[in-house]
Each structure stands twice: as structure tokens, then as C-alpha cells.
């Protein structure tokens, strides 16, 4: 099964976040709880952990991109 990874909403005012850095690359195996990427919103850097275990199949953004809340950032194949 494929699961989408979306930009989380970390604050009431938050509309977008900057994907600051990837900790995993496309094709890599990820475990639930591992840090997938870091995002930066107004003065806050947050690690975002994977909610799934599987293979990071596709990534749609690169470091430095500003992404809307809920937009799909990547796909994890959990099979």
C-alpha cells in the first residue's frame, strides 16, 4: 500500500513551511519514527518523523522549497 507524506500544520497561523533538509533519499528504506525531513516555519526548525515503515518511493520537493500545509511531499510504499 502506498501512503502519502504531507506537509504538517504545526501552528494555527501556519500556511506554508520550508522543506529545510531531507534526511532520507528516494529509494531508501525508512522505519516508522525515523526522521524523514526537517521543515522550517517562522523561526522554528522541526524534525518530521515517518508515520510508516517502507520504501521512500517518490519525493516531489527538494530542500529550500516552500510547501503549502497538507500538500503531498512524498510517497512511501509500505508493501
Amino acid at each position: 500500500m502506498k501512503k502519502n507524506v504531507q506537509m504538517p500544520k504545526l501552528g494555527e497561523q501556519m500556511e506554508t513551511g520550508v522543506l529545510a533538509a531531507w534526511n532520507k533519499e528516494a529509494g531508501e528504506v525508512v522505519k516508522k519514527g525515523e526522521v524523514l525531513f526537517e521543515i522550517e516555519t517562522e523561526k522554528v526548525v522541526s524534525e518530521v518523523e515517518s508515520m510508516e515503515s517502507g520504501v521512500l518511493e517518490e519525493v516531489f520537493f527538494e530542500a529550500g522549497d516552500e510547501i503549502k500545509v497538507d500538500e503531498i511531499i512524498a510517497v512511501i510504499n509500505c508493501d
Binding site: E42, K43, V44
Partner: peptide, 21 residues
């Protein structure tokens, strides 16, 4: 509103956060 601390509108403090481990 910009997460800054001010006295009579002048800034005297900057604040930042991270969520780690």
C-alpha cells in the same frame, strides 16, 4: 505578532525553536 519581545515597540529579544529527538 512576529514572535519578538518589545518595549514601547522596540525589539530587545529574538526567539527561536527547534523540535529535536
Amino acid at each position: 505578532s512576529r514572535n519578538d519581545l518589545v518595549i514601547h515597540g522596540k525589539k530587545f529579544s529574538g526567539n527561536a525553536q527547534c523540535m529535536l529527538n
